[in-house]
């Protein structure tokens, strides 16, 4: 199975943006930047300010990936799927929500916050904002091998379920109450992966999944997501 990577977007402790705007990519531990609407979207977007941090993080990386692939503008809903991987999910939001429940015996429980206590809520927000009608779900794995969402994206393309899939990872810092559970580097990173066709726009390169489940980029094995982004940027800047 072969497909093209046409867009990359990320938000992490070192910054945020689209693949084609950067020459280097790192994923290092550290505090995530404040994510404001103006930093991500040119147009007013009232709902963005009401979202929890986890949703804003994931949605922002998706927005950058779509922009990088030239797919951020739309007039008709599109069949694009979203498959994201997370370790902590929306645990930070869960803690914030339950803070509104217990002290006041639920009288001040926040319905707005509760709506974001599902890890897939930001996929719904992305679907609404960008008109994406494909499948959308979250993967969590006991192992930290975070290529799983990419593998599932490739299987989705292979099975004909989708022609385009946004695939990536999203994690906030671990909440204080659960500090021991957080081993992942916080940040969000998404790839726009498309079936090879005459309509496909400019691509970083070719992603393939072999029968053993191994991912390759331009014929070379993919070790992890950071390695994949660096490979994409190297190709892009070698060409430019």
């Amino acid at each position: 199975m072969k497909a093209l990577i046409t867009g990359i977007g990320w938000v992490n402790s070192t910054g945020m943006g689209c693949g084609r705007e950067h020459r280097r990519f790192e994923m290092t531990p550290g505090r995530l930047p404040e994510i404001t609407r103006k930093a991500i979207f040119e147009e007013p977007y009232q709902r963005f300010g009401r979202m929890d941090r986890f949703s804003r993080l994931g949605l922002s990386a998706i927005a950058f990936a779509l922009k990088d692939a030239g797919l951020e503008k739309w007039t008709r809903k599109r069949d694009i799927s979203i498959i994201a991987s997370t370790v902590l999910g929306c645990l930070d939001t869960d803690v914030s929500y339950f803070d509104t429940v217990i002290p006041q015996e639920s009288r001040l429980a926040s319905p707005n916050l509760f709506a974001y206590t599902l890890p897939n809520s930001f996929l719904g927000e992305a679907a609404i904002h960008f008109g994406l009608t494909g499948n959308s779900y979250i993967i969590s794995s006991p192992s930290t091998w975070r290529l799983q969402s990419l593998r599932m994206a490739m299987i989705s393309l292979d099975s004909g379920e989708s022609d385009k899939v946004l695939s990536g990872v999203c994690d906030l810092e671990s909440p204080d109450l659960f500090a021991a559970t957080g081993k992942e580097i916080p940040g969000a990173l998404f790839f726009m992966i498309e079936k090879i066709s005459k309509k496909t726009g400019p691509a970083y390169g070719e992603l393939s999944l072999d029968r053993k489940g191994m991912l390759n980029f331009n014929g070379r094995g993919v070790k992890d997501l950071v390695n994949l982004v660096q490979g994409c940027l190297a190709v892009e800047h070698a060409e430019s």
Partner: peptide, 24 residues
């Protein structure tokens, strides 16, 4: 998520249970 409730109430609870991958 019941273990998040218990942690909030100051009751001993295994924090790993709140992870989505825990059942797997």
């Amino acid at each position: 998520i019941d273990n998040l409730e218990r942690r909030h109430l100051g009751i001993s609870a295994d924090s790993r249970d709140v992870l989505l991958s825990r059942a797997a």
